[in-house]
Design a binder for these strands. Structure first.
Lengths: 236, 236
DNA sequence: CCTTGATTCGGACGTTACGGCAGGTCGTAC
DNA sequence: GTACGACCTGCCGTAACGTCCGAATCAAGG
């Protein structure tokens, strides 16, 4: 029989943790001395070892309690836990890849903007668009998608600058920006249905909604859309 | 300018989260209306997007606040976060492997014992022994180590049964168990120094300490150690 | 027998990033 | 007039303990 301190030392846990397990009924000491001190026996030790193992696998104390009460369900639970760990691992891998790309390809002075864009796109795209983006990511390669995100904002701001500075719609500069703009839209819109027009309509019809999610006003967005129209109209 | 509800909708966060960010000073609305309602501007939107991005990378709100106040340290912080994510991913992989081995190779009726042993060994081994185990794991292959853990307990209980039932030390049964016992010890002790004797001495000298970590008493352990001696002595 | 230092007890608060609820205010639409 | 929606400020709850508290109890030494 061991005192709480001895048990804690032996199993490399802490006194506080053992008291916690007692509190929630996960591990009750076999007995108490007359003055209330906890005394743990070999069965408690075994149970504690089981608990610690399951904890390292990331199970909650509640799950552990349940599975120790129903050992016949243990196999199912362990399989579920493996699936859970695999999911988490996949998520982590995706995050690592994203972060690596950010650190590899981005201008150190521009991390803030790049970060901004990541979340902006996540918020901007509807769930169905997210799905189609995932599909296109596989087709285009992940780097293309990331750089598209970055280009997107630059393009909007370039267009906005053109509008504000009254850059002539038939200038090379304007044509260049709009060409890139259309190319970007084509890359993202499911191809087939006259992408330029489709993109244009989408931006026009949803400028209110888009401006609610982006740091540009609906007026600004409408302005650049019609400016782009002018540029396209004057294109040879 | 947006109200808190609009901003929450636009960025797919929640009103409660935005209020929380305000509370801890992470994201203060640009202004308040006379009646106290929060009003967020484009700058707030940008900052919120940055916050959400950094959160997906697993940074705490405190870290995020710090890095947004000191953008020049951003690169360092992102690298640190990548290292952190990599570490977690490696841990997850190790756990997955361990759990997979458990599910693949173990008797479903014996999961409890197997789990018990995992933690028992972790607690039993001193940190330096853990290190040497890691080294030997690579030499022997991970499966050998896992099965050794399982064998360990079976062997102790077999030996104990022999002692209790007065199995003759010169019987084949006793010799078989002790041979396995010595083989197991040899596999774990850093080879070279007369492994049998070294293992014997270690168990003998530390029986108190070992019994404090295992569900067997010091008397039982001493009994099996001297029983093993007898078996070896009577060995041809 | 008494003191001292280590251990134990139960209770309460702190941690993270919010979720949820209560009770009150505000503006608008019917 | 009132019903409704969106907003406000608290305050409690979460998981798994860590930390700190005053009070009781233990083991050992003088």
């Amino acid at each position: 029989m061991w005192t709480i301190g001895q048990l804690a030392q032996a199993t490399r846990t802490t006194v506080r943790a053992l008291r916690h397990y007692d509190e929630i009924g996960l591990l009750r000491p076999t007995e108490r001395t007359p003055n209330g001190h906890r005394r743990y026996g070999p069965e408690d030790l075994r149970r504690l070892y089981r608990i610690r193992s399951l904890r390292t696998f990331g199970m909650s104390l509640e799950q552990i309690a349940a599975s120790l009460e129903a050992p016949e369900a243990m196999e199912t639970l362990l399989h579920a836990q493996l699936a859970f760990l695999s999911k988490r691992a996949a998520e982590l891998d995706a995050l690592k890849a994203q972060l690596t790309r950010l650190l590899d390809h981005d201008d150190p002075d521009d991390y803030l903007k790049a970060l901004e864009l990541m979340a902006m796109f996540d918020a901007y795209l509807t769930p169905e668009q997210q799905d189609s983006l995932t599909a296109r990511r596989e087709a285009l390669g992940p780097e293309a998608v990331e750089s598209a995100k970055k280009e997107f904002r630059t393009l909007v701001e370039s267009l906005l600058a053109c509008v504000r500075n009254d850059v002539a719609p038939d200038s090379d500069q304007a044509r260049d920006v709009v060409a890139k703009w259309d190319a970007l839209g084509a890359a993202f819109h499911t191809a087939g249905t006259g992408t330029e027009a489709a993109t244009r309509r989408m931006w026009d019809e949803n400028s209110e909604e888009i401006s609610a999610r982006m740091p540009w006003s609906a007026e600004e967005l409408r302005a650049i859309v019609s400016y782009a129209d002018m540029v396209r109209a004057g294109r040879p």
